[in-house]
Amino acid sequence: MEPLIKAEGLTLRYGKKVAIDELSFAIPKGRVVGLLGHNGAGKTTLMKALVGLKPAEGQLSVLGMNPSKQRVALLERLSYIPDVAILPRWARVEELITLMSGLHPRFSAERARTLLKRTSVGLRDKVKALSKGMVVQVHLALIASIDAQVMILDEPTLGLDVLSRKAFYEMLIDEWCDGERSVLISTHQVEEIETLLSDVMMLNEGKLVLSISLEEMDRRFVALSHDPAQAEAIAAAHPLLRYRVQGGSAALFDGPLPEAVQGLGQRVRPSLVDLFVALTRAPEMNRTQG
């Protein structure tokens, strides 16, 4: 089945600077993909290319369309929330629903009102009277009421407290993800969204260093918790990363544990954060995997 998003050799430059470098990946339907990377890694640039805001070299297909050449048609079937949720401060929530009804042919006012019932926001409330968390929830309710197939979220919960972030992601997963649509989420709150994800893509200095399902990640990567006294022997096996854990130390390996260290500790599941640190900590770690 044709993926919803497919890129081959995707490259985008700002003058002489390469922002994203030869990216190749595919996102099928029904996936929730986390896009991870340090500031400046190329996450926002990639998302702008996906929605047609930045033309790029290479091959890119989103819902079977070229984003830069068919942007109007694409945006009827794709939803995008940038890293700053901005709504007109003078407007009432009900007025925003009316506005969206006139602007977007696939927007459902009835669904927007239903989604807003999950929040503490009233239809008569003005945007200027809402907290930042409420504004983000209104924004999501409006975007999720578009009958789209792909949603792209660039740091959607930036600056929100933990309860607001939790409410946002609960609404997203409960009300929008249905096994047919796919979501691409860029975020720095890796620990909070790991349980929501089906796949992860990691960018480092514009390069794709990992593109993998979490199921495959669990099979491929392994960590060994060990006593500090074994540190020298563990280091000799050249792990991807050595780090501290509660009560001792741990080492992260790509692939089966080397025979030399198998009896030196206890095998544990590496977290997504540990893997992210291992693969994006330095330029020499850059390599395409997956």
Rank of each mutant, 00 (worst) to 15 (best):
M151V: 15
P228V: 00
E155V: 09
S79R: 08
K48H: 15
E216I: 01
E94F: 05
I27L: 13
D21P: 09
F276R: 01
V62R: 06
L264P: 00
I146E: 10
S120I: 14
A148E: 06
W90S: 13
E175H: 12
L224Q: 00
V135P: 13
L279H: 11
S249M: 15
N286M: 07
R71Y: 09
G265W: 00
T11N: 02
N204P: 03
E2M: 15
D147C: 05
V127Q: 01
K16A: 14
L4Y: 12
G179D: 01
Q262V: 01
E180Q: 13
Q189C: 05
G248K: 06
K16H: 12
E76Y: 08
M151N: 01
M134W: 14
Q266R: 15
E284D: 09
Q266S: 13
V150R: 00
Q266W: 12
I20S: 01
R77T: 13
Q230M: 14
E232Q: 11
R89S: 15
M202H: 07
V135G: 07
G248M: 02
A251L: 05
A91H: 06
L208Y: 04
E170P: 11
R89H: 06
F107T: 03
N286F: 02
V62H: 05
P258H: 09
R269M: 12
K43T: 15
Y80W: 15
V190F: 10
R111D: 10
I146R: 11
E194D: 14
K17C: 07
R89L: 14
G37P: 09
T44R: 01
A251E: 00
P3F: 14
E175N: 08
L87Y: 04
E110C: 00
R113E: 14
D83K: 07
W176K: 04
L78P: 14
L46I: 05
L103M: 13
P67C: 09
E22D: 14
Y169K: 01
A167W: 00
